[in-house]
C-alpha cells in the first residue's frame, strides 16, 4: 500500500464520516476548522479507519485526549505548557515536525485542533502500517 493509497482511503473515510464532498477534503484540511468535525466524529473516524485498514487503534493513540483533561501542569492560562508540549510530541511522534513547531510557537489550547489534519491521519497510518 502506497502513501497515495492510504490518502485515498482516508479521504473516502472522511467523506463518509463527515458528509463532505470529495473535493472538500485535501491533505491540509483541518478536521474541525475546515471539515466541521465534532467530538463524536473523532470516535466515528477512528472506528471507520479500523474497519477500513483492518487495524486496532488504541484509545487516545491517534487523537490524544490526556492533554484535554485540564491537568494544570499540562495546560495553564489557555496555553499548553512546556511539559504539555513535550507530552504532546511524545504521544504524537507521527505528527509533521514542522506543524508541531508551528503550534509550539503559539500553543493556545484553542489552536490544538489545527494539528488534527488529514495529513496527520495519513502520517499516523503510515507509521502504523510500516509504509
Amino acid at each position: 500500500m502506497t502513501q497515495d493509497d492510504i490518502y485515498q482511503k482516508v479521504k473516502a473515510t472522511l467523506v463518509d464520516a463527515l458528509n463532505r464532498d470529495d473535493d472538500e477534503v485535501t491533505p491540509s484540511s483541518r478536521l474541525q476548522a475546515d471539515l466541521g468535525a465534532e467530538s463524536i466524529d473523532f470516535l466515528d473516524i477512528v472506528f471507520r479507519l479500523e474497519r477500513e485498514f483492518g487495524i486496532k487503534i488504541p484509545r487516545g493513540e491517534l487523537f490524544p485526549e490526556s492533554i484535554f483533561q485540564g491537568d494544570p501542569s499540562l495546560v495553564a492560562g489557555g496555553k499548553i505548557t512546556d511539559k504539555g508540549l513535550a507530552e504532546l510530541r511524545d504521544k504524537m511522534p507521527f505528527a509533521d515536525p514542522a506543524e508541531m513547531d508551528k503550534f509550539a510557537a503559539d500553543p493556545k489550547l484553542d489552536n490544538m485542533g489545527d494539528l488534527f489534519t488529514v495529513n496527520l491521519i495519513v502520517r499516523y497510518l503510515k507509521s502504523k502500517l510500516g509504509v
Partner: peptide
Amino acid sequence: VIDLRPEGSV
C-alpha cells in the same frame, strides 16, 4: 452490530 466497544457502538 458493526462495532461494539467500550468507547461507543455502531
